[in-house]
Amino acid sequence: MPTLIPLDNFLGAAFIGIILSTMLYGVSCLQTWLYYTQYSKSDSLRLKLFVALVVILDTLHVALISTAYYHYTVTNYGDYGTLDTVTWSIAVQISFGGLVGLLVQLFFAMRIYVLGKRRLLIPGIIGFLGVVELGCSIAYTAAGYSDRYFSVSGKAGHANAYTSTALTANIVCDLLIAGCTVYYLREGRTAFYRTNKAVTLLMTYALSTCVLAMIFSFVCLITWVTLGEGLIYAVFYWILIRIYPCSFLSTLNSREAVRRAFQEDIPARELSSLETQVDSPDKDKDPPEAARTRPSSSRTFGPFTPNTPLPVYRLAEDGRNSGRIIASAANTAV
């Protein structure tokens, strides 16, 4: 027998959102365990504490949305009037979600700061947008406490203003993170295949995490504007909050794979091959004659000189620049 009031858009949507977000929380827990057991040996205590802070806040957010669902479905079972009230946990979880997002975005902003040769403009904009998002989240929490009812918040326009502003700032912030990371990483491309492979790997990680967050932010904004009467938007918002710790931890745990790809970039056999290519135009000449035909230079890069037939010295310079970029991206900046 159907209930008097359809609950699909409220409790049904909240149930789906909790199930999906807790599945991603399990992935974050696995990544946390891998980080502390395998990938944190060379990290500073500050970074380890930062990871712990993000994971703790993520755990508290899961506890808050679970507490809210228990309040509506168990503690007040059958009380339809309670469904319109804003319980403390459903209001506070917005602020915790905004704080988790801000911390992860500041981490990526610091990475862009290092990749961009310590230019402050773009990281400053990212940090500002993150603070705007957190401020709107806190304002939404305060408005929920003040209004006490979902219907009152909707009529007053508080929810629409704060949520729309926060999600828009979030979309722009993730777009800047993805675009600037890819731009700076593209500067690390060289003539070496494995270096380009490492750069491509980093670019793939950056795009997959930031673009996924942007997609869920955009869908959350659309569902909030068009279907704001229920909690359908919460399905995408709670998944979005889980994406940030997952992307943060996956970035840290993928550093070892990137380091291996880059450290194998210029092995001795590859340098020998390049040296052979440099010397190949003179292979038919006697060594003294070959030496006379090669212009001399005081600037050397290992076995290569700037005046060799192939611009290997440029490859060496590009390799060092690429090494700086990849090392900055592979090693955390926190």
Rank of each mutant, 00 (worst) to 15 (best):
T3S: 14
T3Y: 11
I5W: 11
D8L: 01
F10N: 02
F10I: 10
L11Y: 01
F15Y: 09
F15C: 05
I16V: 15
L20F: 11
S21E: 04
Q31K: 01
Q31P: 00
T32I: 00
T37G: 04
Q38R: 15
S40T: 01
S42W: 01
L49K: 15
V51F: 07
V54P: 12
S66C: 12
A68N: 14
Y70L: 15
Y70H: 15
Y77L: 12
G78S: 06
G81Q: 12
L83F: 08
T85E: 13
Q93D: 05
S95M: 06
G97F: 03
V104Y: 06
Q105F: 00
M110K: 13
V114Q: 13
V114E: 14
I122N: 06
G135V: 07
G135K: 00
S137H: 05
S137W: 01
I138D: 02
I138G: 02
A139W: 07
Y140M: 14
D147S: 10
S151K: 08
A156W: 01
G157W: 08
A166I: 02
T168N: 11
C173Q: 15
Y184I: 05
Y184P: 04
T195N: 11
V199K: 01
T200V: 00
L201H: 08
T204C: 06
V211F: 11
L212N: 11
I215N: 03
S217Y: 02
V225R: 14
V235F: 07
R242M: 14
I243Q: 07
I243H: 02
C246P: 00
C246G: 00
L249Q: 03
N253I: 04
S254I: 05
R255E: 13
E256R: 14
D265K: 02
D265E: 12
R269Q: 10
S273K: 03
L274D: 08
Q277E: 11
K285E: 13
A291E: 15
S298E: 12
F301Y: 15
P306A: 06
N307Y: 14
T308E: 15
Y313G: 03
R314C: 06
R314W: 11
L315C: 03
L315W: 13
D318M: 09
G319K: 02
I326N: 08
V334Q: 05
